[in-house]
Amino acid sequence: DDLEQFAKQFKQRRIKLGFTQADVGLALGTLYGNVFSQTTICRFEALQLSFKNMCKLKPLLNKWLEEAD
């Protein structure tokens, strides 16, 4: 599944880049005006958010990865 794959890759890249889940949540706030909690990022990576929320977060996290690289 696409979302599952993305969540896995996101977590690996985030760790490799040296960011915590909280860092990502704050960075999203800075970039897009939407601060996300560490818990939200954690749940995303664990696929524990609703499908709708996963779909909403994915493009933001994808963009963040591009910026962070």
Rank of each mutant, 00 (worst) to 15 (best):
Asp2Glu: 13
Asp2Pro: 08
Asp2Arg: 11
Asp2Cys: 05
Leu3Arg: 00
Leu3Ser: 01
Leu3Met: 14
Leu3Gly: 03
Phe6Ser: 12
Ala7Cys: 10
Ala7Asn: 01
Ala7Lys: 01
Ala7Arg: 04
Lys8Met: 12
Lys8Asp: 03
Lys8Glu: 13
Lys8Thr: 07
Gln9Phe: 14
Gln9Gly: 10
Gln9Thr: 14
Phe10Trp: 04
Phe10Met: 04
Phe10Ala: 02
Phe10Asn: 03
Phe10Asp: 00
Phe10Glu: 03
Lys11Thr: 08
Gln12Cys: 07
Gln12Glu: 13
Arg13Tyr: 04
Arg13Cys: 06
Arg13Ala: 08
Arg13Glu: 09
Arg14Ser: 02
Arg14Lys: 00
Arg14Trp: 00
Arg14Thr: 00
Ile15Lys: 08
Lys16Tyr: 12
Gly18Thr: 01
Gly18Ala: 06
Gly18Glu: 01
Phe19Gln: 03
Phe19Pro: 05
Phe19Met: 13
Phe19Asp: 08
Thr20Leu: 02
Thr20Cys: 09
Thr20Arg: 01
Gln21His: 12
Gln21Pro: 10
Asp23Leu: 03
Asp23Arg: 10
Asp23Thr: 01
Asp23Asn: 04
Asp23Lys: 03
Val24Met: 02
Val24Pro: 04
Val24Leu: 04
Gly25Phe: 00
Gly25Asn: 03
Gly25Gln: 04
Gly25Trp: 00
Gly25His: 03
Leu26Lys: 12
Leu26Gln: 14
Leu26Trp: 09
Ala27Gly: 09
Ala27Asp: 05
Ala27Asn: 01
Ala27Cys: 15
Leu28Gly: 00
Leu28Thr: 02
Gly29Leu: 00
Gly29Thr: 13
Gly29Tyr: 12
Gly29Pro: 04
Gly29Gln: 05
Gly29Phe: 08
Thr30Met: 12
Thr30Trp: 07
Thr30Val: 13
Thr30Pro: 11
Thr30Ala: 14
Thr30His: 10
Leu31Ala: 09
Leu31Ile: 14
Leu31Tyr: 08
Tyr32Gly: 10
Tyr32Trp: 09
Gly33Arg: 08
Gly33His: 03
Asn34Arg: 13
Asn34Asp: 12
Asn34Trp: 02
Asn34Cys: 15
Asn34Ala: 13
Val35Trp: 11
Val35His: 11
Val35Thr: 15
Val35Glu: 15
Phe36Met: 14
Phe36Glu: 11
Phe36Trp: 03
Phe36Ser: 08
Phe36Asp: 06
Phe36Ala: 12
Ser37Asn: 08
Ser37Thr: 08
Ser37Arg: 06
Ser37Cys: 04
Gln38Arg: 12
Gln38Asp: 12
Gln38Val: 07
Gln38Trp: 07
Gln38Cys: 08
Thr39Gln: 12
Thr39Ala: 13
Thr39Ile: 11
Thr39Met: 06
Thr40Ile: 06
Thr40Ser: 06
Thr40Arg: 05
Cys42Val: 08
Cys42Asp: 14
Arg43His: 05
Arg43Val: 04
Arg43Gln: 11
Arg43Leu: 01
Arg43Ile: 03
Phe44Arg: 00
Phe44Gln: 00
Phe44Val: 04
Phe44Leu: 01
Ala46Thr: 11
Ala46Arg: 09
Ala46Ser: 12
Ala46Gly: 13
Leu47Lys: 11
Leu47Gln: 06
Leu47His: 14
Gln48Ala: 05
Gln48Ser: 10
Gln48Trp: 07
Gln48Gly: 09
Gln48Phe: 02
Gln48Thr: 10
Leu49Phe: 01
Leu49Trp: 13
Leu49Gly: 07
Leu49Thr: 01
Leu49Ala: 07
Leu49Ser: 04
Ser50Lys: 09
Ser50Phe: 03
Ser50Cys: 02
Phe51His: 14
Phe51Ser: 13
Phe51Ile: 06
Asn53Gly: 11
Asn53Ala: 13
Asn53Cys: 09
Met54Leu: 07
Met54Pro: 00
Met54Ser: 06
Cys55Ala: 13
Cys55Asn: 12
Cys55Trp: 10
Lys56Gln: 06
Lys56Asp: 11
Lys56Met: 11
Lys56Glu: 12
Leu57His: 08
Leu57Gly: 02
Lys58Glu: 00
Lys58Arg: 14
Pro59Cys: 12
Leu60Val: 09
Leu61Ala: 02
Leu61Cys: 02
Leu61Thr: 06
Leu61Gln: 02
Asn62Asp: 14
Asn62Glu: 15
Asn62Val: 15
Lys63Ile: 04
Lys63Asn: 09
Trp64Leu: 01
Trp64Ala: 03
Trp64Gly: 02
Trp64Asn: 00
Trp64Asp: 10
Leu65Gln: 03
Leu65Cys: 01
Leu65Ala: 07
Glu66Gln: 14
Glu66Val: 10
Glu66Asp: 15
Glu67Thr: 11
Glu67Gln: 10
Glu67Lys: 13
Ala68Ser: 12
Ala68Lys: 06
Asp69Leu: 07
Asp69Asn: 10
Asp69Ser: 05
